[in-house]
Amino acid sequence: MESEDLTKIPCCQTLLSLFGISLAQHLKETSLFQLPNLPTSISCLQNFQSKLSSLSLSPNLVSYCFDPLQFVISPNICANIQSTSDWVSKLGKSTVLDSACRPDLSDLSSCGGCVDAGFAIQKMLLAADGP
């Protein structure tokens, strides 16, 4: 039996988006894209689950949707980018994301432009990763 891709389950994808906001705050505070180690990741996910449980959501949602290792820094992550300085050295100080993505994406054309910019950056990162 094939394992199910949990990111395709709408609830898990929504939770990943919400947790992504926390990771963005972590990036802002530390310049690191991911968490420093497994205990930190486990602690953050337990805290996230606690907040979800306080909303009367299932007490095992986080453990069902996430592997704590997926949020830990490792050298084999995308194009070996672990920090903002790595990002700048690989992609430069400014990318198409800076011009295409704005805080208010309620206008669908703005949202589409931001998504297109994201795919352009993804293509650049895949090229940087090599074969």
Rank of each mutant, 00 (worst) to 15 (best):
Gly20Ile: 07
Leu52Phe: 04
Gly118Glu: 08
Thr84Gln: 04
Phe33Gln: 04
Val62Trp: 04
Gly20Lys: 01
Thr30Val: 10
Gln13Met: 08
Asn47Tyr: 04
Leu6Gly: 01
Phe71Asn: 00
Lys51Thr: 09
Gln122Leu: 11
Ser109Asp: 15
Ser56His: 11
Leu23Ile: 03
Asp98Trp: 03
Cys114Val: 01
Leu52Ser: 05
Leu6Asp: 07
Thr40Ala: 09
Ser58Gln: 11
Ser63Asn: 05
Pro59Ala: 03
Phe19Asn: 00
Ala128Trp: 07
Phe119Leu: 12
Asn80Tyr: 12
Asp107Tyr: 04
Arg102Asp: 10
Leu57Glu: 03
Gly112Ala: 13
Ala117Ser: 11
Thr95Arg: 11
Ser17Trp: 00
Trp87Glu: 11
Thr40Asn: 06
Leu105Ile: 08
Asp129Ser: 12
Gly92Pro: 14
Ser106Val: 05
Thr30Lys: 07
Arg102Cys: 11
Leu45Tyr: 03
Ser63Val: 09
Ser99Pro: 07
Cys44Trp: 04
Ser74Phe: 13
Leu126Thr: 08
Cys12Met: 05
Phe19Arg: 00
Ile9Pro: 00
Ser99Gly: 14
Gln49Ile: 01
Ile121Cys: 08
Val96Ile: 07
Cys11Thr: 11
Glu29Thr: 07
Ser94Thr: 13
Cys111Asp: 03
Gln49Ser: 06
Lys51Arg: 11
Asp104Ala: 15
Ile73Val: 14
Leu38Val: 00
Glu4Val: 15
Gly112Val: 06
Ile21Trp: 10
Val96Lys: 00
Ala24Arg: 01
Leu32Phe: 12
Asn80Pro: 10
Ile42Trp: 00
Asp86Arg: 10
Ser22Tyr: 01
Gly112Lys: 15
Tyr64Glu: 10
Leu97Gln: 02
Ser17Lys: 03
Ala127His: 04
Met1Trp: 13
Lys28Ser: 12
Pro39Val: 02
Phe71Leu: 09
Leu108Trp: 08
Cys65Leu: 08
Gly130Glu: 01
Ser63Gly: 06
Ser109Met: 12
Leu23Trp: 01
Leu57Pro: 02
Asn60Ile: 01
Cys12Gln: 03
Leu125His: 07
Leu57Lys: 09
Leu126Trp: 02
Val96Thr: 03
Cys111Phe: 07
Cys12Phe: 07
Met1His: 15
Leu16His: 00
Leu27Val: 10
Asp104Met: 14
Pro103Cys: 07
Gln70Asp: 15
Ser50Thr: 11
Cys111Gln: 13
Gln122Phe: 08
Leu69His: 14
Gln49Tyr: 02
Thr30Pro: 00
Gly20Cys: 06
Pro68Phe: 09
Ser17Gly: 09
Gly118Ala: 11
Ser110Cys: 09
Ser58Arg: 04
Glu4Phe: 15
Cys65Met: 08
Asp116Asn: 11
Gln70Val: 05
Leu27Ala: 12
Asp98Arg: 06
